[in-house]
Design a protein around this nucleic acid. Sequence first.
RNA 1: GGGCCGGUGGCUCAGCAUGGCUAGAGCGUUCGGCUGAUAACCGAAAGGUCGAGAGUUCAAAUCUCUCCCGGCCCA
Length: 1006
Amino acid sequence: MAAKFKADSRRWLTLEYRPLELEKQIRDFWKNNKVAERLEKLREKSNFGVLGYVEGPPTLNGVPHVGHARGRVMKDLRYRWKSMQGYSVPFWAGWDCQGLPVELEVERRLGVKNKRELLEKVGEERFIAECKKTLMKYWREWFNADQKLGVFINQDKAYWTYRDEYIEREWRYLKRAWEQGLLGEGYYVVAYCPHCQTSLSNAEVGLGYEEVEDPSLYFRLKVSNAENEYFLVWTTMPFTIVTDMMLAVHPETEYAKVRVGNETLILVKQRVEAVMQKLQVENYKVTETVSGKELEGVKYEYPFKDSVPRQKELDQQPFVHTVVCEDFVDVSTATGVVHLAPGNGEDDFLAAQKRNVPIYVPFDDECRFTADAGEFAGLFARDADSKVVDILRKKGLLLSVETVRHEYPTCWRSHHKLIWLARREYFLWTNRVNERVVEAAEKVKYFYESPKNRFLSFLKEGKPWCISRERVWGAPLPIWVCQDCEHKTLVGSKKELLEKALEPPSEDFELHKPWVDRLTLKCDKCGGEMKREPFVLDTWHNSGACPFARFTDEEFEKYVPVDFLTEGIDQTRGWANTLLLEHVILTGKAEAPYKAFLYQGLAQDAKGRKMSKSLGNVLEANAVLEKQSADVFRFYTLWKCSPVDTINFDLQELRKRPYQVLGTLYHLHRFFMQNAEYDNFNPKAHTLQWARENKALKPADNWLLSRLQKTVKSYTEKLERCEFNLATAELEEFVVDVVSRQYVPMIRRDLWSDDPQTLQRRLAVYATLWQTLKTLVLLFNPITPFLSEFMHQKVYRELDHSSPESVNFKDWPQPEEALRDTKLEQAFGTLQTCVALVYSARQSAQLKRRWPLQKAVVTAPEQVQDALKSLEDVFLELANVKQVEYAEKLAAFDEKEWASASEGNLQVLLHTRRNESLLGEGLMRDLARRVQSLRKERGFTPTDIMEAVHLAELDQESMKLVEPYLAEMAELVRTKKVYLHKNRAEVKADWHEYKLDNKKVFVAIS
RNA sequence: GGGCCGGUGGCUCAGCAUGGCUAGAGCGUUCGGCUGAUAACCGAAAGGUCGAGAGUUCAAAUCUCUCCCGGCCCA
């Protein structure tokens, strides 16, 4: 038997959608044909326009998980889409290489416990070599994930933040800051582990919260120049009273003066009752209330003046040992009066810095009090707690001391309680350019309100930026200090450094510790020897320098400010911030280095829990993509929720609807290809215009084309607004509802025929589908690049050899307004409602859809009638009725004769009585259905033509009814002839039994 | 402890700005139907005190307040 269709299409388009195989093919295709490289060149040459881009560099200290993969998908989506629109985008990779996370990873691998051990046992040179090795290990993971995902980022042009050429340009940022007086030395409070003798990053502090025991101390401080009046204060860190400088109250809250015996205590009003109960004071009376503001400037007697002589000196300075107002004071716990120790707390420190109060930090590297702390000298900070309590008790200032258990940060390695210490550090005085920073940030487009507000409110805090770190693997701070005259100089480049160096560097010199530390310079001022400040730079400064550091001057001019960036919401205080600060300092302008910034929500597991190693619920991108299709993954991550929302990643869900949508798109192509190839459809000859000229287009085709234009427009707008979930939903609806569910059933019968008389009509349908599916494939390309490329190769280039070599070289579709027909769209909406009503009425009367009925009556307003009349052919076909009548007003009807269904002002009546001819046709279609399923079961393809179909053991009456329709049935099921038998014995065949309305029927085919 | 986001059928989400029809959609379940591109599709049913409480209002998922739970960021 000759097949209707050529074998070709089946070779390309397998029966099933098998994305993993298809994606492998396409990956190879891209690689072998250098598609990504050629795409970049093509858009560069076309000179259409440039959109700057700079890669937010992933830190190479871990493997990418699905959340990272989601981010990469959004970046790639934007790149492919904008490229198709014609823009040239420098989509070049970048890697964040330095910093504490990398160091810790290496320390762990080398089995080193702390910094001191590291320096003694391993040495800086080897340590740095190990850091570089680690980078490459993780880089491979990221590279593989990108390959699997189909991210077209250019790896050859990647920047690496540890390389000399990058660091040099980072130094130029610092030089600009130095020249403007925005870089300098100062103190800053950092979390410090006394055991490991190192400061910890914020992230590390977050790792180590534990429940610990601390003293809970209520004490009082006497108001100067007042009889028996005291502030009531609470603390869990008694030792900080040694470094106490001020008391803070909340300015807008009421404070109470409480009379107890002949003494007065001052505390926040709302806590009086609770605190008195706590202190077991029964007889007390609130004598007066004052606002926090009124307490400002009140001086108090610092209790340790005798024990700590230095404090006695400081007492003379403005603000010292007085009350200040601060918004951060929490009035809902304790007494609402907090004591400030600027050397031991960040808020305290900032409060002091604001008022130029000196920072008193009498500690050595091991957190022991120095000689400057008088009686406390030599004591480890936390060991001073009991001595402090003793002195307070002796002076009669102690009210209560007990033990509390509470959550407190500890060192995640040694589990020691952390201490907050002000240390000498280098700062960018970003507070001085804060206005410009905020102004710049306000001009940026964020797409969604909430991350925007979050970012702006963070920026408005305008804190100085501490950029120095006492670590090893980082870009060195390029400041040298004269050992004689203390003159400082900032070196702006490697060249400058080598020129000024007193001795030539070793051959393996690079811009890292320990090499840079070995170079000493000659002082310009006094000719003395200059040594480098031993710090490295905050790794955030390192990555924040990239818009300038990763480009040449020329490229920087061309690409920065970049057009669009997207990173996780956790980068609000990270990269988004440092990019902005450094750019404002570098340029001196109120300008961000990015015009738009999309913050992405983070990823959690299917149950909404944070992904963590301890829970064992981390979904690694490479492991997931080993088994899951990249296209389905990409579609899923974009479709599931808004990009700013947290995504609860569920592999089960991934395999359902997203797979179905892509599967449907795939099968639509298969359907199209099978038919179009058979009829020798030629897209160049059989264009839409040709079809229109030959009047071969029907309303269904025009409707589909109109809906397509609407989709192109709306989808593009949604991409523009970064509403990726709504954009993909638009595609989903078009593929599943519009094309597959609605259009295909309307044209199916036209295509089923192979009559040469109706060839023109079939070609017109192919022209419509060609245009529609081809456009869809382009729209899908940024989301599902593999499937789009596959279809481009196997369908569009197959039928049209002039098509470009890759789908990526095509242009983005523009909506054609001329094809839009909103009236027709409305009419089809009406049609679909009516058809649904017919189905509903059929169901209520138990009339199968395949049974033709004589008549339907539609009751509806005139406009609706007109719409339906214009589409009457389609209605009759879908409703499977012979004729339709219209009425404007609902008439009474006989329920025995009519089935009805209604919705709003629409009603449909179906004539339920069937004459012999209708019964016969219905029966024929029932039988045909059985034959079709048998055909499928027996492995016939849709196009095989069978020799004979045998039906047996129908009752007398049924045989008589179906007889006139056997020829039509033969055509319908594609057989040469249909034979009716009374008895199975009449012919030797492989009989199959079917039930048909509770009667048996036997079917055989050959 | 502070700030932000979220809590709507078994699951995933829409609706909330600007209060107003019987609170929707998809998945899942059950029954029925349809089907030679499809892992699809159509109809019906079951399933919701819209996190809890209070307030404003003729009317609250929607506005206000308080609280609870989950998440993120920061202390």
